[in-house]
Simulated assay, not measured.
Amino acid sequence: MRQRLPLAGLAILAGLASQPPAQAQPGGPRPPDFASPEVSAEKKVTFRVFAPKAAAVKLASSDIPGNGPDAAPGMENGGAMKKRDDGVWEAVVGPVQPGAYRYRFDVDGVAVVDPRNTATSETNSDCWSLVYVPGSDASDTKDVPHGAVAEVTYSSKTLGRPRRMHVYTPPGYEKGEGKYPVFYLLHGAFDCDDSWSTVGRAEFILDNLIAAGKAKPMVVVMPAGHTGPFRFGAGGDNSFERQMQEFEDDFVKDVKPLVESRYRVLGDRANRAIAGLSMGGAQTLNIAGGHLGEFGYVGVFSSGIFGITGGFNGAPPDTKWEESHKSILDDAELKKGLKLVWFGCGKDDFLVKTSEATVEMLKRHGFAVTSRESEGGHTWTNWRLYLSEFAPQLFQEK
Results as ranks from 00 to 15, higher is better:
180 Y>R: 04
325 H>F: 11
294 E>V: 04
257 P>Q: 04
153 T>V: 14
133 V>K: 10
381 T>H: 04
62 S>L: 10
160 G>E: 10
145 P>M: 06
30 R>E: 15
365 H>I: 02
47 F>G: 01
69 P>W: 02
262 R>H: 08
279 M>W: 11
309 T>R: 04
158 T>Q: 08
105 F>Q: 07
241 E>L: 04
305 I>Q: 07
120 T>N: 12
197 S>N: 14
386 Y>S: 02
290 G>M: 09
277 L>P: 00
213 G>V: 05
277 L>Q: 12
187 H>A: 10
337 G>H: 08
192 C>F: 04
284 T>K: 01
203 E>G: 03
83 K>S: 09
190 F>H: 13
116 R>Y: 04
123 T>G: 10
142 K>D: 01
365 H>G: 05
380 W>N: 07
117 N>F: 05
6 P>R: 12
193 D>L: 06
301 F>K: 00
318 D>F: 11
306 F>Y: 13
54 A>L: 10
106 D>Q: 13
139 S>F: 03
47 F>M: 02
355 S>T: 11
61 S>L: 05
224 A>L: 13
352 V>W: 05
313 N>H: 14
206 L>P: 00
215 A>E: 05
243 Q>H: 11
29 P>L: 15
4 R>L: 15
66 G>Q: 07
343 F>M: 08
121 S>N: 03
343 F>E: 06
13 L>I: 15
34 F>S: 14
35 A>V: 15
301 F>M: 10
267 G>K: 13
65 P>M: 02
297 Y>S: 03
248 E>L: 07
198 T>S: 14
139 S>L: 01
364 R>W: 07
